[in-house]
């Protein structure tokens, strides 16, 4: 009996050790200077194909239509990048959780998957100039529109989804506002429709889309809190591609490319009113 226990324990320890070695190997490998993980603009042009990581199930930013073609706001920009580089595009379907990994291993050249710029991410990858804004928004019923946070009374409750930026932002900056938290989008939506709260705070793209899809609701506050931006990202250190992208975004600003992009891809979801709230043209955030 005792022998079996010892055997099991030693096997467990050995396996654990093996995993540590494996994981440590992954960690230290990223700093290997001998082989850069990325491809320069010249190398991409020479190969004739650029690998661009996009979402394939985040309509209307990156999705696949019924003919199997990639579409959306991010993808529209990707097509233009391919055209201006004179190369074909290989779209790679990425998930929120593996975007950084894809860049660090050089398996894609650019990530255009609705990537919000944050200081933590900027340590892992290099962000080019932004092409979209994101902020928080607050939607309320059209017969009791909330246009400023002062309108929220001491007994009123605001609906949020747990774990979202809206929750952390309101808790930190407006601790006096009572929050009603729901775990899922569907639960929050039902609660809001049943008027369990006076307003619903979420990413502004989400609340704007909600107000347009559902009659009787108005986004009283379309842009609240810190303005975050969405930008293309390249592998850390890939200056050649980064500078090319920055020049491209500046040049595209002159022809109002991203407004056109919005009108082609986002207009149906967000309407004309929010074009200037969401679009960043020429990399300049106003």
């Amino acid at each position: 009996m005792k022998r079996i226990t010892i055997k099991r324990v030693s096997a467990a320890i050995l396996s654990f050790g093996l995993i540590i070695v494996l994981l440590a190997g992954c960690g230290s490998g990223s700093g290997d200077p001998s082989a850069p993980a990325y491809r320069t603009v010249d190398e991409i042009k020479k190969s004739g194909v650029i690998n661009i990581g996009v979402f394939s199930d985040k309509s209307p930013f990156g999705y696949v239509d019924e003919y199997g073609d990639y579409q959306g706001y991010d993808v529209y920009f990707a097509y233009r990048i391919g055209k201006d580089l004179g190369v074909d595009i290989n779209f790679v379907s990425t998930e929120a959780a593996n975007r950084i990994e894809y860049l660090q291993t050089g398996k894609v050249d650019i990530i255009l998957a609705n990537f919000t710029v944050t200081p933590e991410r900027a340590e892992e990858v290099d962000f080019a100039l932004p092409y979209m804004n994101v902020a928080l928004g607050i939607v309320s019923p059209s017969d009791a529109v909330i246009e400023s946070l002062d309108q929220i009374g001491p007994d009123d409750e605001v609906i949020v989804i747990s774990g979202t930026t809206a929750e952390t932002y309101l808790e930190k900056n407006y601790p006096e506002i009572k929050l009603q938290k729901y775990d899922t989008y569907a639960a929050a939506k039902t609660a809001f429709e049943n008027r369990n709260g006076v307003a619903w705070a979420n990413d502004n793209t989400e609340v704007i889309a909600f107000a347009i899809e559902n009659e009787g609701y108005v986004v009283g506050i379309p842009s609240l809190g810190s303005q975050d931006t969405i930008a293309p990202a390249v592998t850390k250190g890939n200056e050649s591609l980064l500078y090319w992208l920055n020049d491209e975004i500046k040049a595209l600003g002159e022809e109002n490319f991203f407004h056109k992009d919005y009108e082609e891809t986002l207009l149906d979801t967000y309407g004309k009113d929010y074009e200037d709230t969401l679009v960043v043209e020429g990399g300049v955030v106003k």
Binding site: A11, S15, L18, I19, G25, C26, G29, A37, Q104, K107
Partner: peptide
């Protein structure tokens, strides 16, 4: 035994990341 225990306690997702991304980083 070590091999089996390793596979058992390692989520398949971690294995996928190690083999797909890890081998690129290390080798």
């Amino acid at each position: 035994r070590v091999y089996l225990e390793t596979v058992r306690i390692m989520p398949q997702m971690v294995l996928l990341f190690i083999v797909y991304f890890g081998t690129t980083r290390v080798f």
